[in-house]
Structure formats: C-alpha cells, structure tokens
Design a protein around this nucleic acid. Structure first.
Lengths: 235, 235
DNA sequence: CGATGCGTTGATAACTTTCAAATTTAGTGG
DNA sequence: CCACTAAATTTGAAAGTTATCAACGCATCG
C-alpha cells in the first residue's frame, strides 16, 4: 500500500485537525538514524498545540502516534469519582499514543505550547509489514512504555517521600541540566501523577528542602542538592 | 531459519530445564485458531512446575514466552527494602513473560502446580518476520499487557476497599464460576498485588462480608453476594 | 486596587500500618 | 483417626501517614 506518503504541513491532506492545533510549515529535522523515527518524519505532519490544548481524547480511535519535538505533554484519565490520574509526562524526543491497539485509554494535552509530529499508525504498520526493523522498533517502543508503567507501579506502593524523590530524580534524568530542574507541570499535575494531594506534594518538597536534599528557589524550579539522599529515599 | 520445530517432551533437545520442572509428554491440544497460539503449540515445549517452583528469575534473559495451560502463576519483584510487589496473576489461557524485549523485569513462580507451554521468542520472531499476522498478534499481546498494567495503576491510587473490591471482580471475571471465586493465592499474594498489608486485606474482606457484599466460607473461597455494591466501590 | 489562580502552611480527621495475640487451618506422625 | 506442630488468617490496640478542610501569602491580570 503506502499510497499516502508525506503530508508536510498540508492540513487539507491530513485527516486530523484538532481544535486549537495548527500545522507547521516543516518538521524540524531531528529524525534520528532510527528506521521508525525516519519513517515518522517522512510520513508525519508537524502540529502545534497551545498550552492546555487537547491532543487526543480518551476513547477516541487511536489512529496516530505522536512524537514530541518541542514543549511538553501529559496524558491522563478522569476517574468516575472526578479524580484525575496522569499517565505520563512526555518531553521532546518522547513518543506517546501507543498505549493500545485500537482506542486510546488516556487523553493527551499539551502541558506547555508544544510541537508534535503526528503519524498515522496504519502507514507505519503497512511499512512494518515490509520492513521488519520498523515492526521491531514499534514493538520495542511499546515494551519500553510497558516497563515505564511497571516502574510506576513500584512508585505507587511507596511513601509520599519516596514518590516525590523518585519523581525528581526521574525528571532530572530526563531533562538533564545539571542539578537544576525546570518543572513544566503544576503541583496538581505532580500530585495526580504520584497519586497524592497537592498539599502532600508541597509539604514533602518543603520537608526535602529543610533536610537540605533540595532547594526550591521558585515553585517551578528545583535544585538537587543531595542526590544520594534522594536516591536513598527512592530505593 | 526455523530449524528447531517441535520438541515435545524431549528435554535433551530443549535448551531450558529449570529446577523442579519437568517436560510433559504431549501438549494438550488447546491451541486456538489464533496464528500465534497455533505457532506456540507447534514450537513450544510443555513443562510442569510444582507449587512455588520458579519459572524464571528477574534479570534472566527473556528468551521465552509462556502460556499457562493448567494451574496458576504469579510474577513478582523483590524491592530493595525487602517488600515484594506482585506483577500479575496468570490463569489457564494467559500468556506471560513478554514484559520486555531482552531481560525479564520480574520473576515468575507457579502459584499452584502448573503446566506451562514454553516457546522460544526468537522462533516466534523469525516466524513473525515471515508472517505479519504473528507479529501483529505479538504486538497486540504486549499492548494488552500494557493496558492491564495501566488499569492496575488506577487501582493503586484508590482506597483499600476499592482495591479489594476491584480485585474480586477481576478474579470473578477471569475465572468465571458463577458468583463463587476459588482463589489460588494467599492473603500475602493478594496484599502484595494490591500494595496493602495482609491485615488490611483481611479486615477489608471481613468488612465486605459484614455489609453483605460477599461471603467468605473458607479463606480461599469467596462468594459475591452483591455485585452492584462491589461495582460501586470499584468505581 | 480587587479578583483570581496557584502554592504553602496549619489543625484535624480518616485511613492504613505496625505490633501483638488469638484463632483457624493444614500437615505430620503416632 | 487423633493429637500435635507449624503456618496462615483474623482480630485488637496503638502509632504513623496522608487526606481533608481552612486560611494565608503571593504572584498575575484585568
């Protein structure tokens, strides 16, 4: 098949046009040497989403996968009792939207203004049928996501201090900038990610600060002062 | 490739021989019409594990995938602080061991005497390279596992009552026998699955019994008396 | 300014764990 | 089959942790 190839920036040819989103002239050329990444950049459309815009909704058909090229994204689910559980935070370079085969189990929103490469799954799958490497990579990505979620289960059975410490270490590793972290998300986002309340997150940060493990110069910036103490907590 | 085909019951030809495990003469013929299941039954070896025997260990190479044909299995991880987190319970028909690409992130044990069909992944992958349907199925299985784990995250942020109620409903659905459930696992297994203590699990069951939602004639048998009440809890 | 949203802090209540003991169940040998 | 021991489960009381409710500070924005 593979009749549709590249749709760079031509929204009329691209089947999706979410509210608030607009196509971008050219994808940035950060396609790695990876076969799937390469294919995504060839076949994908670059979209721009303002802060808090919905990228896809829960239970919508999951026809696309998404790669963050700029900004940050959160996936989430609203529970019947009104609580929100955050599925994950995605930073530039991360791929999201492959959590299941047919319908999304989560919604996705731009946490900050974001540029997202959007690729039709069927195009990739068709390519996967021809190129075993692409199929392998798709499989590996899903396996990685599975592992990420498994790791979070380990997080959720721990204490509030351990959860917050692990979260900070995770963010520091994913957005390396020395010991300083610039959080793209609110306290509520963190709380909903860790299964805590904002009060508990705030108190825990204060407590970590008072034991000299971190500094919190502004609410969105956190400096790791004692990683070994944090590592001890995160187990 | 596909040089190795069927090894039914000949342990000398089969590369694994876990302690306590022994091969069985013939796989039972429950292979579905599913291409991957069919392939597994053709290429796999049927193994028998006594209660509490290890099937694979954490960090061992994940060269095989496993299908339960009889008995029950638990996967788990021991945390640095000594606690044990159970990854999942697997009943007849379930496939496990595909949580990642290279090394297992969990250990697996027979929870009761179990018969397991063991299939080398590389054989399946080779087949997958030739048969897109097998690749699709392998992908779908991993996606299903991902969803299962995501659902458990939703569990772990809830209260003890909600977790236990959800667990009972899940087990009732997976091993349908009217409203009666025969638990193959101990209270400790349940506690480690739900991220609670055995005392809390026990108390919660007692509380559910005293509000007439369930009956607990013996510790391993539970009768659902009021599903809507349980559903209300499980949200 | 005053309003609004976000984050922090305090006091209290609710829930779960911990530690201890009692009870039931399962397994073993006589 | 019974008695006995070990293991699993249940129950109780106290301690610890987190959530809830409320108030306050501090920015931003009209």
């Amino acid at each position: 098949m593979l009749t549709r190839t590249a749709t760079h920036g031509d929204s009329s040819r691209h089947p999706i046009m979410p509210r608030h989103a607009r196509p971008i002239d050219r994808p940035d050329a950060t396609a790695g040497s990876d076969p799937i990444e390469h294919a995504m950049h060839l076949m994908g459309a670059m979209m721009s989403y303002p802060r808090n815009a919905e990228i896809f909704g829960e239970d919508e058909p999951a026809d696309y996968i998404y790669k963050v090229t700029g900004g940050t994204v959160r996936t989430y689910k609203i529970l019947s009792d009104g609580r929100r559980q955050i599925g994950g935070f995605y930073l530039p370079g991360d791929i999201f939207g492959l959590e299941t085969a047919d319908a999304h189990t989560l919604s996705a929103e731009a946490m900050t203004d974001a540029k997202i490469l959007v690729v039709k799954k069927s195009a990739l799958s068709t390519l996967a049928g021809h190129d075993a490497a692409v199929a392998q990579k798709l499989f590996a990505l899903t396996a990685r996501e599975l592992r990420r979620v498994q790791d979070r289960i380990l997080l959720l059975i721990k204490s509030a201090q351990e959860r917050v410490a692990s979260f900070l270490l995770e963010m520091a590793e994913r957005a390396p900038a020395g010991n300083s972290i610039d959080l793209p998300m609110s306290r509520q986002d963190i709380a909903d990610y860790l299964g805590l309340t904002i009060e508990t997150v705030s108190r825990t940060l204060t407590s970590l600060e008072s034991c000299a493990a971190i500094e919190v110069p502004t609410s969105r910036r956190i400096v790791l002062r004692n990683r070994s103490a944090l590592n001890r907590l995160h187990g």
